[in-house]
Amino acid sequence: MDQMDVPLAPDTSPPPNLLELFLAFTKLGITSIGGGVNGMMHTEFVVNRRWFSDKQFLSGLALSQSLPGVNVANLALWLGFQCRGVVGAVVALAAVVLPPAVAIVLIGNIVLRLSADPAIGAILVGLAVAAAGLSLSVGYLAMRYACVDAVSIALFTCTLIGATVFHFSALVVVAVLAPIGIGVGFARSRHERR
């Protein structure tokens, strides 16, 4: 609790202007290959540029990972909002999304033409399989992190079995289980406070 008493203001620089914001997040969007840029973002935004305090960054990170949407995009929205309100959020999002969106169409155009070749086709399947392996590792870590008690284990198990075995739409799974999970989470945090 001690860190709550530390004043945050002296740790941070004045907020960046929109161009600085756009350029910083463009760099972030382009370099976020295969996921896992959070450590780099922390160095860039908190340590080097001092746009955010540790606490601002970490609470933004935790929320952008748990709210719906792409993690990097959500973090950009969150941090952009902290700097320059709604306009800042939209500028940061555009910077993260647009340059790589053009890149994937240009790269995809070439690769999809070549994929009829059996050797290149096999390499692509191999890349997809290996990428699924990376997701497997991320999913395993997420499971270890999320399953903290009987309720969270039940939520996890229902989601996994519902989506995989019974082929329930993710929309149905989320619409049913998210309110239960958040509700229990609320009750739990109130209980802990007492």
Binding site: Q65, G139, A142, M143, F156, A163, A178
Partner: peptide
């Protein structure tokens, strides 16, 4: 409290959906 409740409630769903997606991808590969 908001933050804790969101993370507590949504993290198990995220883990379940990610793993389910991996199984779907691999069984179609």
């Amino acid at each position: 409290a908001w933050q804790g409740a969101l993370i507590y409630g949504l993290a198990p769903l995220a883990a379940g959906l990610v793993l389910s997606s991996v199984f779907t991808l691999l069984s179609n590969a």
